[in-house]
Design a protein around this nucleic acid. Sequence first.
DNA 1: TGTATTATATATTAAGTCTATATAGAATTA
DNA 2: TAATTCTATATAGACTTAATATATAATACA
Lengths: 141, 141
Amino acid sequence: MKLSTKSRYGTRLLLDMAQHYDQGPIHLGEIAKRQDISVKYLEQIIIPLKKANYVLSVRGPKGGHFLARPPEEITLGEIVALLEEGPSLAECSEHAEVCQRSNLCPTRLIWKEVAQAMFDKLHAITLADLAERARAGAQGA
Amino acid sequence: MKLSTKSRYGTRLLLDMAQHYDQGPIHLGEIAKRQDISVKYLEQIIIPLKKANYVLSVRGPKGGHFLARPPEEITLGEIVALLEEGPSLAECSEHAEVCQRSNLCPTRLIWKEVAQAMFDKLHAITLADLAERARAGAQGA
DNA sequence: TGTATTATATATTAAGTCTATATAGAATTA
DNA sequence: TAATTCTATATAGACTTAATATATAATACA
């Protein structure tokens, strides 16, 4: 039930980009240093974020990555759902066909409702909110 | 972020016992058949539930397991927190010392708040509620 | 034109976790 | 004493996680 490093690091990666929004492309080496995550691992994590069009990139010197949309328009719900491969806590919640008991199992719907509560919360928080929290000091939550 | 089979099967195990509450000890073979989970795996899952005093057992023929408390008094929040080893989505949420950045990382508190939303929901559902849902037909959620 | 810089693509891997199964032993009933 | 059930411990294959490594492609700038 723990979040993977993929979604946790991915969130920090995007937060870092949000904190430098409108400052041109930022290369991963810089983010890696600031966030203390290996460049190689960030390179891997950024792939789905590019595919899903949250991030645009330019190659070469002075190249790097930047957010495709303003931080106000990207929620943590989208990010976590993307990097955790779906917004569900159990396979059967989204794909009833994986279990024969789906149509009469009361736990299946519970997992669905709980995931909903979780993602309602995540969808209410944007990268801009997160950046604001960071500015205000992490304590002020 | 998916729930482990341990907590999903564990919930079904306890639900089955709730559905047969006050009917004396039930052996795992019976539950295994009803829930379509191997006896051997259930034997493993029931250990922490016994240690945490949710389940009592008697050995020998006519032996089996039964809930130590009425189904109304056991919430899914307790069960999931027990079997997922804590009610958190990230190690740092509960143990700030695992990461040097804890005191200034805004994501840490987010994961904490999201886990809270999730467990608020889970704590609001008892085994009795779950049994009632099962009786009413799984659709009726 | 050439070199440094950055992104991109693919492969590899070590460790750990998940999901079980197997074997042996202890307690209880009849 | 035999059958039944729980209990304890060990084992194991598959998968996932969390990376690292190597090679290639594109671009800026001197």
